[in-house]
Write a protein that binds this DNA or RNA. Structure first.
Length: 610
RNA sequence: CGGGGCGUAGCGCAGCCUGGUAGCGCAUCUGGUUUGGGACCAGAGGGUCGGGUGUUCGAAUCACCCCGCCCCGACCA
């Protein structure tokens, strides 16, 4: 039989397997372990899971290293990966849990296209606003399209065409699908890919209360999902970013390698992304004084000015000039001020200005404002000036004099910068006071963002005209929420939390296989006992991989541990003769049981009763 | 986009400075000895040295350009 014919034959068996499992089991029991292609038995010797002994040189974080080493993924190009069978199995497990919980929450699954026409994005205004992350292209008819980074436009288009009555609302539709975002800097393997798999849900409502209820429903659903995935996580208040809307929470898996910084209160349950978090700071009490110009030759940075004048950095006013793109101040420069010992949070500033993007202005822009780099102050600047709330009543401050080698002292915001606007601009600092409970102080943690929920309101439903007839027979615009989970990112996030020096450690709910049978040696008895064990376990509904390779024991143990398979059943002549079969758990423990008790023991472990 | 680094066999690397047509470990294949924690011996296969141009009798090596990848920053569901 040539290879092609063998494949057809094997596929025939596979077909039978799906049609009648029992029959397939009979088919496989008749086959010996010398058969060339047997798709029904998960034999490691035939399984596509190429493991590596060394860490690949271009992997930095542990999840990326382990995913590559264990043969779960391979890189195709920057930020784009193949999922090999092992990786796909984990991905499917995660998807399964997400699907179960979304179904429980009352959401319905559908599938939207990845290729989207520019028209919809122009309607929502994001064709211009979304930036370079949106991969745009033209088809053969020169029609502009993009790869979907998210699906608000498409879902609104669909729903707008089918929604008639308030009686159809609320509804929550979701999909699990590939997204493409042309990230500036993809990194860390599955953690920040350009193409990635996301569960995105969109809910539509007749009113705000209904949206609030669904927001809470999804919030609770996310908590259940991440709990079932065995993760240590935290829900935090979040900026709404390019998705927009009025309210948002992010769900973060706590991990050192996380790209996000989370601020949380030591006392109450307040937690927020630093992009959004608020806190209280000590306001220095300074005496009001007259404005006075002082010579500060070559002294430019906050630290240098403070030490030159022998004052605290909190007495200084830090003024930063930004070039704004989009919004009311499009194309203009804007000055932003915080206390000298604070950091300006640029996302907050962009948000306060309703800008698409902000960028620190260059020296030229400074001089055209009549100022000079290193000596910028707000007084007399001919541009929009926005200050952090904490500066509202500040007096006696030191600021740049907008003149080389000069600063001013005695600056009073009310008196000297009366036109200033105020907004929350400062980044929360470690040990700041908690603005919510007023008792605790701010602490920091690193997180991997794996989910986010948004109350969008009518931001998309208005421009895309998602309309319905309300109770009174009047036309109304639907209210919307959206809810995302980074499914492929979760694969990495779980590994970041669950690993040791030998490799991954999958929780039972996510493991690519629950059990691996490790056959020691190649004696006929060990092979036959292993194959029978494989059959019996499969029949008992256990997901099992049989390591039938002609490898030495150490190699098999190392690979099983690297791949993090939870239960290892070791079958060798020694154990078989003594009727003491070793069962090891990847998480640590091991025991020996008689052959007759192996399956019951494994089932007890799987049921969590052992 | 700014800064730094890298690109030589499937993986990890040496060779480059000082030009002479490629090497090591692991992996793979064959044979043998092994077999409860990444074995050993013998043999073999596999590389247009990221690509192009130039300098040169001769380029992995020197010069220039391009491409790709990684890290830090900027940016970002």
């Amino acid at each position: 039989m040539n290879l092609h014919a063998a494949r057809l034959h094997a596929l025939g068996s596979l077909h039978n397997y799906f049609a009648t499992p029992k029959q397939a089991i009979q088919l496989t029991t008749t086959s010996s372990h010398t058969s060339q292609l047997n798709f029904a038995i998960m034999r490691y010797s035939r399984f596509f899971a190429p493991t590596l002994r060394d860490d690949p040189a271009d992997a930095e974080v542990i999840s990326h290293k382990l995913l590559l080493r264990a043969g779960f993924i391979r890189r195709v190009t920057s930020g784009v990966y193949d999922f090999l069978p092992m990786g796909l199995r984990v991905l499917r497990k995660i998807e399964g849990i997400v699907r179960e919980e979304m179904a429980r929450a009352g959401a319905q699954e559908l599938l939207l296209p990845m290729v989207q026409p520019s028209e919809l994005w122009k309607k929502s205004g994001r064709w211009e606003k979304y930036g370079n992350e949106l991969l745009r292209f033209k088809d053969r008819h020169a029609h502009e399209s993009c790869l979907g980074p998210t699906h608000e436009e498409v879902i609104c288009d669909l729903v707008s065409r089918e929604l008639r009555s308030y009686k159809q609302l609320p509804m929550n539709l979701y999909q699990i699908q590939s997204k493409f975002r042309d990230e500036v800097r993809p990194r860390f393997g599955l953690m920040r890919g350009r193409e990635f798999i996301m569960k995105d849900a969109y809910s539509f409502h007749a009113d705000e209360e209904s949206l609030q209820a669904e927001y809470e429903n999804m919030f609770a659903t996310y908590q259940r999902i991440f709990t079932r995935l065995g993760l240590k996580f935290r829900a935090v208040e979040a900026d709404t970013g390019s998705i927009g809307g009025s309210q948002s929470h992010e769900f973060h898996v706590l991990a050192e390698s996380g790209e996000d910084l989370i601020a949380y209160c030591s006392h109450c349950d307040y937690a927020a992304n630093v992009e959004k978090g608020i806190s209280t700071r000590d306001i220095p009490s300074l005496d009001d004084a007259a404005l006075n110009v002082i010579e500060t030759p070559n002294v430019t940075s906050v630290e240098d000015v403070a030490s030159f004048l022998n004052i605290n950095t909190s007495q200084l006013l830090k003024t930063l000039i930004y070039q704004v793109t989009g919004g009311e101040f499009d194309g203009q420069t804007v000055a932003a001020c915080v206390y000298g010992d604070d950091t300006l949070q640029e996302i907050k500033l962009a948000r306060a200005l309703n800008a698409n993007a902000i960028e620190l202005a260059d020296d030229q822009a400074l001089s055209s404002l009549g100022s000079s780099k290193g000596f910028v102050g707000p007084q007399g600047l001919r541009c929009k000036i926005i200050m952090d709330e904490s500066l509202r009543d500040a007096v006696g401050m030191v600021a740049g004099a907008n003149k080389i080698d000069s600063h001013v002292s005695g600056l009073s915001i009310h008196r000297d910068v009366p036109q200033a606007g105020f907004s929350d601009l400062r980044e929360v600092r470690l040990n700041d006071g908690c603005a919510h409970c007023k008792e605790g102080h701010i602490k920091h943690a690193r997180g991997i963002e794996v989910g986010q929920v948004f109350a969008l309101g009518q931001q998309y439903t208005k421009p895309l005209e998602v309309l319905f007839q309300d109770k009174n027979g009047k036309r109304a615009t639907a209210t919307m929420g959206c809810y995302g989970i980074g499914v492929s990112r979760l694969v990495a996030a779980v590994i970041e939390q669950c690993n040791d020096e030998n490799g991954m450690i999958w929780p039972l709910s996510l493991a690519p296989f629950q059990v691996v049978i490790i056959t020691m040696g190649k004696s006929e008895t060990a092979m036959a006992a292993s194959e029978k064990m494989y059959q019996d376990m499969s029949a008992a509904g256990i997901e099992v991989l049989w390591d039938d390779r002609k490898e030495r024991p150490g190699v098999k143990f190392k690979d099983a541990e690297l791949m993090g398979l939870p239960i290892h059943v070791v079958l060798g002549d020694r154990g078989l003769e003594a009727d003491a079969i070793e069962i090891r758990q990847r998480a640590g423990s091991k025991q020996e049981v008689s052959m007759a008790n192996v399956i019951a023991t494994v089932q007890a472990i799987l049921a969590g009763t052992s």
